[in-house]
Design a protein around this nucleic acid. Structure first.
Lengths: 258, 258
DNA sequence: ACCTGAACACCGTTCAAGT
DNA sequence: ACCTGAACACCGTTCAAGT
């Protein structure tokens, strides 16, 4: 995030030997600092003001403390953001693996749960794209997804590709979704107002026929409902596609229209 | 990008009245500045050192000029990055709409072209996620995609969802792909080395059964080939899924396994 | 063990001034 | 019309010092 040239480039908090951090047991007095309190405050601040406004100095002020005191608990800003990211990853509600439930339903449920938490913490999807996501909660999340496809009807050698496919799609979706919501929030407009304004402007641009078909079906559905529907839709297409690919047992490496 | 609290929040360069910029005709002497030269230099610098290292001051130095001279051509750093983004969008090789070609092939070709350019400019996928992408080249790119699905066999009302589905997927894919490549570059490792190191570390972490199945098929294929295959694979699944959904004409709103 | 203060090397950008 | 210099309000972080 800072990007200053360093001799030993950092990779992840989770790949470094732990500091004083992580001693959750110590019920410290409410006055003293504490890694958990710092991370919690960071999440609160990031939610409230966005990652662009977030700074170590701002956070320190929030905690009534000198900026440098944070550095006793955390090596640098990137590490702190990685910790904050894993904290919100812990908020994702993982579906319980009911014995009689369909794996496709569970996968949809997991994707929806992920989407829901990310919409609540837009900065976190940017962090998700920036870091390695190998904290305990992130790993638990990934494991959950792996378990689900492991119980699927897909052949084992397809599991990684299947997992990656839905992950990439969902990540892409929530990435642009949260960005639009942030834009609306920043400009003080509703999502619809902002979208309409942009669409109109593109319409008026020189060259090409404009955003045809992107603004049509505004009769019965709100934009939120439209987004929900498109999200589920593509997920279904993807899952249906990989199931069909298996059903029609062509030679496994050679996909459809080649 | 800066995030300072401003009275009038910016939305996009392309939504503001143009400055002196854009006078491409003026064959200015090679000594003077020029919007095109500035943008080109920015792209060069971003490619070489990444967006984390990029700054107005650094760019000015590169152009042998005072930082503030840039501000005659460009309102702020975000605007400049948006211009740089559109410049690389112009590098995407759009498939020519051959009259006898399959729309699915064209869609795959477009996705692949997009991916190729983004891998060449990793900072641009972050910019893509941050801005509105409504510059002339970006719009041309989007229009091309729209034309392709317009020629598809899908019912008209599905076109926006179909377009969005493949966009989100491809964006998600290249987003994580370029991030891994950047990590490898930053650490001076090959992509394989870096990936193995991370995978091993996750393996040793407490709790959960580890990254099962993510590191299997390392026999005949390199990581690059694996990625290429997975990219095409999910794209095929997605396209197959949406075609199948149409073929088996169930009631249009109620997808597969509900 | 935990926290502070001063300082360094950076940022983006405003503003008044130069040519 | 185009570019500069000084200055402002910020950054993340180092380092030596306090308790």
């Amino acid at each position: 995030m800072t990007g200053k040239r360093v001799s030993q480039p950092r990779k992840s908090v989770w790949l470094s030997p732990p500091r004083a951090r992580g001693r959750k047991g110590t019920e410290s007095s409410s006055t003293g600092l504490d890694l958990d309190r710092i991370v919690a405050a960071a999440v609160r601040l990031l939610d409230a003001e966005g990652d662009a406004q977030f700074s170590m100095r701002r956070l320190a002020a929030e905690l009534n403390v000198t900026p440098m005191s944070l550095y006793w608990y955390v090596a640098n800003k990137d590490d702190l953001l990685e910790l904050a990211l894993d904290a919100v990853a812990g908020e994702i509600k993982l579906p319980a693996p009911g014995p009689d439930s369909d794996w496709r339903e569970e996968l949809r449920a997991l994707a929806t749960a992920w989407r829901r938490t990310m919409v609540a913490h837009p900065w976190a999807v940017r962090a998700y794209g920036a870091y390695l996501n190998i904290g305990p909660c992130s790993v638990r999340f990934t494991s959950c997804a792996q378990d689900i496809v492991a119980r699927s009807s897909l052949p084992q050698h397809e599991h990684p590709a299947a997992l990656s496919a839905v992950f990439q799609y969902v990540y892409g979706f929530i990435s642009t979704e949260t960005r639009w919501l942030e834009y609306a929030r920043e400009t003080g407009q509703t999502a619809d107002e902002f979208f309409s304004e942009v669409a109109d402007s593109v319409e008026e641009m020189p060259g090409e026929r404009a955003s045809g078909g992107l603004m049509e079906q505004h009769e019965s559905l709100s934009m939120d409902e439209l987004r929900d529907r498109d999200f589920d839709r593509a997920l279904d297409w993807l899952i249906a596609g990989m199931c069909a690919d298996v059903a029609t047992a062509r030679q496994p490496r050679q996909p459809a229209g080649r």
